[in-house]
Design a protein around this nucleic acid. Structure first.
Lengths: 340, 340
DNA sequence: AGCGAAACTGATACCGGTGTCATGACGAGT
DNA sequence: ACTCGTCATGACACCGGTATCAGTTTCGCT
């Protein structure tokens, strides 16, 4: 009743259980070298007092924190949000916390800043979504610092335990086959900057999908955008003013695909009657546009969750071992139809 | 050259500077009780060795971490992202880190979980965006735990130093005046759940805006939605099937406003010719819809930044003291026009 | 009963900082 | 020169855990 509202420490528990603090420590850390009776007695006190170890003190002694870092430089906030949600799904109740850290991947001080951040916080693990995951120097740094990490990207750049591959190419190939199967022959592509691995992989997949149907990508029909709405509008106008207009346009992200909608409207072209459009990302806007837009969906949240499970110890304790496939999925809506 | 790659500690610095570790500590913490010469000598060693104090050890001694918590339960990820970005803007280079923590505000264990989280991590400060900020129990808990916090919400619920008010009502009033000034008389409202403070405040503001123009909200024209796309579609259909259709619809968020677009299309009503639409949030979708949608914008990122500056010591060190007003702004686009 | 190995436990140092308090140095006042 | 009060500094304990290693039980076996 005295209400000393101080949180109990390991010393309090040790005293109450009449054991040394080291033994309490052993119980907390699930050491096998504790007699069953002792363990139960200590656990009883822990429950009774509501004791929980201090992560700072623990981290200090362990020389490692219980923080997972999410390091991102994402032009698309939607991706970051989804990854973050998935990560948090996996981390919930694990005792680990997520610290988020946006970076400028073009900064000359990037590596120094990252080293300082990771060393100071003594991060337990790090998640690197694309495009940060594509920086080989960062991966090397993390290896040097002996920090666990998971890179999320469109293509395998690291060993499986450290890399989560989203197979963007497969999704793009599916889109290509979809359009070809609808009878389209002049299918245009608006890709992203070639510095983005995702753009390169998606384009590769798209071309191989076309090839499966005996088609090739006409160089007139291949435009390079900037992954932005405006660049989508501009590229679409170029395509629509060609002597022989494409009957379908595949965009390597939804932002640009939305730009195609605008360009089409400005020219009086109807979607999908005059031109089919397929995007990539299945962002929330895709299903709200008119007509609702077909788009390739990546399981971003699942990827975040799996990355978390790869990093957090025991995250998979009672869960099935099956690592669900990370597979893109083409969501077909009204923007893609049989060629007129 | 020996390459003992261990990070330098305060002891290393103390030895090299021939002072006690306590003096180094004083220099780090900018204590005024250090002779100028000593300070410079120590700072030189710090620069030379690249020493940086360990936040865990420091936190352990301080009984407080250098972590700021962002606790959210946001139906709208866009809000969370923006707030988070702003917070990180303010925190960049401050030595503080952001840990994010989604919660279910309806969970019966919410308070226990929050208490455990905050106590264990010994958070330095906490940011509570709406609607979590509206929970008075959480604010009380934070006061009990003696943790600094900033609540972000549409109406003042706390003292100024702990509350950031977004004045949603003003934005809604502006929308009402805008529509009235365009000649609309039958202006409908689709509001959010009455459990959301934001919805209540926005509605209040809307009605007061109407009143300024001598109008009142007809009860037939006031629909309650769920802040979702689907509820917007449903409410719009109800409105459009009224004997005397409204000529304008104001929605308390963009999701529902997007639903109005869909309902209008399904009935062959043209925007803005047959019906004007104004949303709230100015989400990315607003400018991508056709026609581009008028919407009330809240400076979410700025709000996050200001919240960060309120929590992080010295964040305002060299910055002007002027706390920019948090004012909503009506972005007028093509979806609102003179009444036919 | 005797004995060695294995199982269990605790004393003590340590992780890398800060708080407390005593002590030394220095300038002002008399 | 002597006494103070202020400034500057360091010795030591402490924050709340873990590692090391030695000491004590317990147990199986002869």
């Amino acid at each position: 009743m005295e209400g000393s509202s101080r949180r109990p420490t390991i010393n309090d528990v040790a005293r109450m259980a009449s054991v040394s603090k080291k033994t309490v420590s052993r119980v907390i850390n699930e050491s096998p070298f504790v007699k069953e009776d002792t363990r139960k007695a200590v656990q009883a006190i822990i429950r009774e007092t509501g004791y929980a170890p201090d992560p700072q003190a623990r981290g200090l002694a362990f020389r490692r924190s219980f923080l997972i870092g999410l390091i991102y430089d994402n032009p698309n906030p939607q991706h970051t949000v989804s990854h973050q949600q998935g990560l948090l799904d996996a981390m919930a109740g694990s005792g680990f916390e997520l610290v988020v850290r946006p970076v400028d991947r073009t900064s000359p001080r990037l590596l120094d800043e990252m080293r300082a951040f990771i060393e100071r916080q003594k991060l337990f693990g790090v998640v690197l979504p694309s495009p940060v995951s594509e920086d080989e120097r960062l991966a090397t740094l993390l290896q040097d610092l002996d920090v666990r990490y998971v890179r999320i990207g469109s293509v395998a750049l690291d060993e499986p335990g450290r890399m989560l591959v989203s197979h963007d190419g497969k999704g793009a190939a599916e889109a290509a086959r979809h359009l070809a199967d609808l009878g389209h022959r002049r299918i245009a592509l608006i890709s992203g900057p070639t510095t983005f691995r995702s753009s390169v992989e998606r384009r590769k997949g798209f071309e191989s999908g076309l090839a499966e149907r005996g088609l090739t990508l006409d160089s007139d029909l291949a435009k390079v955008g900037a992954y932005t709405y405006e660049s989508g509008v501009a590229a679409a106008h170029e395509l629509f003013s060609l002597p022989s207009r494409p009957t379908a346009v595949f965009c390597l992200n939804d932002e640009m695909a939305t730009g195609v909608y605008t360009a089409a409207r400005e020219r009086g072209l109807r979607i999908p009657d005059d031109v089919s459009v397929v995007g990539f990302d299945d962002s929330s806007i895709a299903s709200r546009l008119w007509p609702p837009m077909s788009s390739v969906r990546l399981p971003l949240r699942d990827m975040g969750r799996i990355a978390g499970e790869m990093l957090v110890p025991n995250a998979m304790r009672d869960k099935p071992k099956v690592q669900p496939d990370i597979q893109p999925e083409l969501i077909v809506r009204a923007s893609s139809a049989k060629v007129g």
